[in-house]
Amino acid sequence: MGDVAAVVADADVLAADLLVEGPARDALDIVRAHSWMTLLASELLLDDATAVIQAVSDAGLAADWREKITEFATIVDHAAGDHPAIAAAYHGGARHILTFDEQLHGAAAAVTIRDQVETSVKHPAGFVRLFDAESLYTEVVGGDYPGPDRDPRA
C-alpha cells in the first residue's frame, strides 16, 4: 500500500526549502522536477509552515508561498491534534516523510508510524542520497526513465 512517489515534507522542511536551501531545497527539487511525483500536505501542515515562514521572513512572502504550495501540493484532510506530517502521510498514503525532527527519526516513532502507515521518515539529505529515479520511474510509470520532465523553478 501507499504511493511510492508521494512525499510529505514537514513544516520545517517546507520552510527551509524556501528560506535556507541546502538539503530541503535539494529534496523538494526532486519532487518539483518530476511530474509523476506528488507532494502531499494538509491545510494544518501548511498553516504551520506559513507561520514559520512569516516568523522568520515576512507576511507577504509567506502568503505568496502559501498560494504557490497550495497550487503545487495535493491537499489531504486530517483531524486537528494529529501530527500534521504523519497524518498527511497516513491519509494520503505517502511512503516518505521528510523532516529535520529527530524525534520522528527515532526508532520508537518509526515503528509506530510503520504500524499505521507504510512510510519511512527521512532527513531530506537521506532522501536525496537514496532517491533512485530510474527504478522509481519504472515502478510508477513504466519504461525507461526519461529524466526530469518539469522545470523545478517554474
Partner: peptide, 30 residues
C-alpha cells in the same frame, strides 16, 4: 508566481535551519 521568484525574494533573508526549527518548535509546543 514561479518558484524562482519566491526563492529570489527569500534570498533577501539570511535564515538558518536552526531558526526555522526554533520557530516551528515555538508554534507547535509554544
Amino acid at each position: 508566481m514561479s518558484w524562482a521568484d519566491l526563492f529570489a525574494r527569500a534570498g533577501a533573508y539570511d535564515v538558518t535551519e536552526s531558526e526555522v526549527l526554533a520557530a516551528l518548535e515555538a508554534r507547535r509546543n509554544g
